[in-house]
Design a protein around this nucleic acid. Structure first.
Ligand SMILES: [Mn+2]
Ligand SMILES: [Mn+2]
Ligand SMILES: [Zn+2]
Ligand SMILES: [Zn+2]
Lengths: 145, 145
DNA sequence: TTCATATTTGAAACTGTTACAAAGTTAAAT
DNA sequence: ATTTAACTTTGTAACAGTTTCAAATATGAA
């Protein structure tokens, strides 16, 4: 499970690859589901008995700072983390809570947007609604997620 | 201050125009600054001595449900509220906290996005960075807002 | 005035996240 | 091997924004 590529990936972003950090990064690289902190912690805690949730928070925050991953703050139900740093949008299903990539994005030019005099450091595009599976199942009225 | 147009606006969205609701809606209509709950409460409390922050929360939630306003959840520092329900993006300055409208948006077609089988109910576009004023003042390293 | 209904309040609960001091780990220098 | 300094991790408590809820208040029709 301790993929050597994962340690190299962290090193290439100036992150010291501790055992816990490698485990968290590895999970993100191998589970492209935009997991929450709780999902990551729940998945890793059984096999890493000494892992604390604070360490998951610490690691993810560090990864984001070092631009090894990106964070998706699509609602106030818990941030999602994405090992893919390419510019892309996200769709969140209000029924099942799943987060889907939206890679086919229109080209956005800073001048065309009327933001010539701004310094843009980040752009996030969020869609919400119901995913194909939930549309089929008519699961249109769920509450949480 | 009790603008009759504001009561009519609420009524047209199926909202009973109580004194407090009219005050909150009125503030949003006359202050297009994407205010937070705290900003609204701080502005109204002096003149409406009996106003509670919970009522501001209640009113805004109702307005959003009835689609009389829209909510901008651009970060976890407090939701912003916008009397303009037209589809547009927002830019938040990381230095001064100001939220700016981005009306010149590219056209986004559901099929072109690869979301043909999804049911899209909402789309939000968020930019972050530094506004022209803060770029000039080189206020690039503020913490809060 | 009475009654039913709707609104508002204030306090407490809740959620995701952060701060922090103490404890543990690592590895270079001695 | 031992010391030392720097870094990592932990667990708890604090924090911020928001929601819940029962009690209090207001509204308005009969
Ligand atoms: Mn993604
Ligand atoms: Mn706006
Ligand atoms: Zn779904
Ligand atoms: Zn600014």
């Amino acid at each position: 499970m301790k993929n050597p590529n994962t340690a190299d990936y962290l090193l290439s972003h100036g992150i010291k690859p501790s055992v816990h950090r490698v485990a968290v990064m590895n999970f993100l690289l191998n589970n492209r589901i935009h997991p929450t902190v709780d999902t990551i912690y729940a998945a890793l805690a059984p096999s890493i008995r000494t892992l604390s949730k604070t360490t998951v928070y610490n690691s993810l925050k560090l990864f984001v700072e070092k631009e090894a991953i990106q964070v998706i703050e699509i609602d106030d139900k818990g941030a999602r983390y994405d090992a893919c740093c390419d510019k892309h949008g996200h769709f969140k299903c209000l029924a099942c809570g799943g987060v889907f990539d939206v890679f086919k994005m229109p080209y956005l030019n800073q001048d065309e947007l009327g933001l010539s005099d701004f310094k843009i450091t980040d752009c996030q595009i969020y869609y919400k609604g119901y995913c194909p599976d939930c549309v089929k199942k008519e699961m249109h009225f769920n509450s949480n997620n």
